[in-house]
């Protein structure tokens, strides 16, 4: 049986049209959800691969409106989540950003540096507009903090499978499964990401989480150039079939 897979890309990387073609290539390969990152000039939670992609998208003239345009087109192919940083949301106006995400057909928002308690009103805005706001949880989370997070009843939780930033490979051990086990009790759908690049990892997570998330592995493939669309489709297919 083919599993779920949330595939991540950076909007307008390497350019707008190509990023739309990338969405198609990911869906063709079997991605069941798409996470579109809106580039920010100062992505502090991202490693060099995604940083570089964001930089290039911005140098190419990416505007937040392009991001929403891409979401709208991608949402015709698969459920779409938007990932970005607080300043992009805040500069637009939190309510406006949520409304624009809704209009574009996005299912949820993952905003790395707006966390429950320090969200600038994002969770409230999401609730009143019917937009899922997805908190990130890390393995070092305390029970008290986890309780705080689950008290807002998120439909999804993004589980970062290790501390640190995106890009580096994560080794899964007993602790990873235990972490996911802890999260399973929250009743939320767990999206598990950070350092996932092999079918083996995906298969392992497929059982313990709602869906694995793969990001830097795709971006790395695009950065190599050449006929990356075909390679991305093949990579996706390989990941979902374990």
């Amino acid at each position: 049986m083919k599993g779920k897979l949330m595939a991540h890309l950076v909007a307008s990387y390497p350019n707008y049209d190509s990023s739309l073609a990338i969405v198609e290539a990911l869906v063709r390969g079997g991605a069941t959800m798409i996470e579109i990152q809106f580039p920010f000039s100062d992505p502090t939670a991202d490693g060099p691969v995604i940083q570089d992609a964001c930089r290039r998208a911005l140098d190419g003239g990416f505007r937040v409106d392009d991001g929403f345009r891409l979401v709208k087109e991608a949402a015709l192919l698969a459920p779409v989540f938007i990932m970005s940083y607080g300043n992009i949301v805040f500069s637009r106006g939190i309510e406006d950003f949520v409304a624009a995400s809704k209009d574009a057909g996005a299912l949820g928002l993952i905003i790395a540096d707006l966390t429950p308690g320090y969200d600038g009103g994002l969770y409230r805005a999401g609730r009143s507009a019917g937009m899922e706001i997805i908190p990130v949880v890390v393995p070092t989370v305390t029970d008290k903090r986890l309780e705080e997070i689950t008290s807002i009843h998120p439909a999804y939780i993004y589980a970062a499978m290790r501390v640190g930033i995106t890009g580096k490979r994560t080794d899964f051990g007993k602790e990873s499964i235990a972490f996911l086990g802890r999260l399973a009790t929250t009743g939320a759908r767990i999206l598990a990401g950070f350092g996932i690049s092999s079918g083996e990892q995906v298969a392992l997570l497929g059982d313990a989480a709602y869906s694995p998330v793969v990001g830097s592995a795709f971006v790395r493939e695009i950065a190599k150039g050449g006929d990356y669309l075909e390679r991305i489709t093949a990579l996706t297919a390989g990941l979902v079939s374990g």
């Binding site: 937040v64 607080g86 300043n87 500069s91 600038g120």
Partner: peptide, 21 residues
């Protein structure tokens, strides 16, 4: 400077309309 949230704090920053520094 415009009000923004960057590098962990809310303050005034030099940035464009999209919030890019």
């Amino acid at each position: 400077g415009k009000i923004g949230i960057v590098q962990g704090y809310k303050s005034l920053f030099l940035m464009d309309d999209d919030g890019q520094l």
